[in-house]
């Protein structure tokens, strides 16, 4: 791969061109359906003409204004802002909690041999196999018993624990790939095992951490059913719940729905933009030197 740059002349240029062509094709594939969503969001009442390239007849930002400008009935509380805050706080806290819960466990699974490790791994994988349909009502009873209905804490805990199994596997895979000499060297230098884990191993696992954080964030960010069921005050709703309200039993306001969906995806893109730097920062950057 790195050798490719050294090759002079035509072949390298051809490779670059091919790479860009492939990526442009992939981007087109990724963007095309989103283009429809954007068109819907920008139009007020378009006719469903069978067109290949969607474009709104008379673009307007009305739908975005309607969604983002929502206030409470008395006009005193900016509901959209509040609900955006809820979503951000819940998703970030979920990502953090999931990482805090999963990382040490993943480390233990990677580095220690202990009684029950095999059973724990199997059980974790098994939890993912059970369709959530069957667990929603028992989960509600559980949260109700813990008095966590209608609280952000309750929702964060539920989301975080759902994200934990994947996070554990992902982090454990990353730890397995990090040589043991790293932390052993640190421990020789006087660091405790936990100190070595936090200061040496974790930084080296940054790409996997970035993936895990993004994944846990997404788990919470787009979830709708549990949020709609567990939150019963408007000030506590997250954005997906509010979005779904535009689709009623009979009437559906797709324009607003689409505009909301676009607004909802902006923070995800922003988060990814921040995280992607770490995605490519591997073993050779940062971690090892410390």
């Amino acid at each position: 791969m790195s050798g490719g740059a050294a090759q002079p002349g035509g072949r390298a240029i051809l490779m670059e061109t091919l790479a860009h062509l492939a990526l442009v094709a992939a981007v087109a594939f990724a963007l095309y359906p989103v283009l429809w969503v954007v068109t819907l969001a920008l139009s007020s009442g378009d006719a469903p003409d069978p067109v290949v390239i969607p474009f709104p007849d008379s673009p307007s930002l009305d739908n975005f204004e309607a969604v983002a400008g929502r206030t409470s009935a008395d006009g005193e509380v900016w509901l959209f802002g509040l609900q955006l805050m809820n979503s951000v706080v819940i998703a970030l806290a979920t990502a953090l909690t999931a990482v805090v819960i999963a990382t040490p466990a993943a480390y233990a699974l990677s580095r220690f041999r202990f009684v029950g490790a095999k059973a724990a791994t199997g059980t974790l994988l098994a939890t993912q196999m059970f369709p959530g349909v069957a667990a929603a009502i028992p989960l509600y009873l559980m949260l109700s018993y813990l008095d966590l209905i209608d609280t952000r804490t309750g929702l964060i805990l539920v989301y975080a624990t759902t994200a934990v199994p994947f996070a554990i596997f992902q982090m454990r895979g990353a730890f397995d790939g990090i040589p043991r000499d790293l932390e052993e060297a640190a421990m020789v230098d006087g660091a405790s095992r936990f100190g070595a884990f936090v200061r040496v191993v974790l930084p080296a696992a940054r790409p996997a951490l970035a993936v895990t954080i993004l994944f846990a964030f997404m788990t919470a960010w787009n979830e709708f059913i549990l949020a709609a069921t567990f939150m019963s005050r408007e000030e506590m709703f997250t954005l997906p719940v509010v979005l779904q309200r535009y689709v009623g039993e009979f009437d559906a306001r797709w324009g607003a729905f689409a505009a909301g969906a676009i607004l909802v995806s902006v923070p995800v893109m922003a988060l990814f933009y921040v995280l992607q730097r770490h995605l490519v920062a591997g073993l050779n950057a940062g971690g090892v030197k410390g």
Binding site: A105, A120, T127, A135, P138, M142, T161, P165
Partner: peptide
């Protein structure tokens, strides 16, 4: 090792496994 996994064990047990078993 248990010091590293105990909290994950409790959290997943209570909020994932228990509801699934009831379900």
């Amino acid at each position: 090792a248990y010091k590293y996994v105990a909290h994950a064990f409790v959290a997943v047990g209570v909020l994932v496994i228990a509801p699934l078993l009831v379900g």
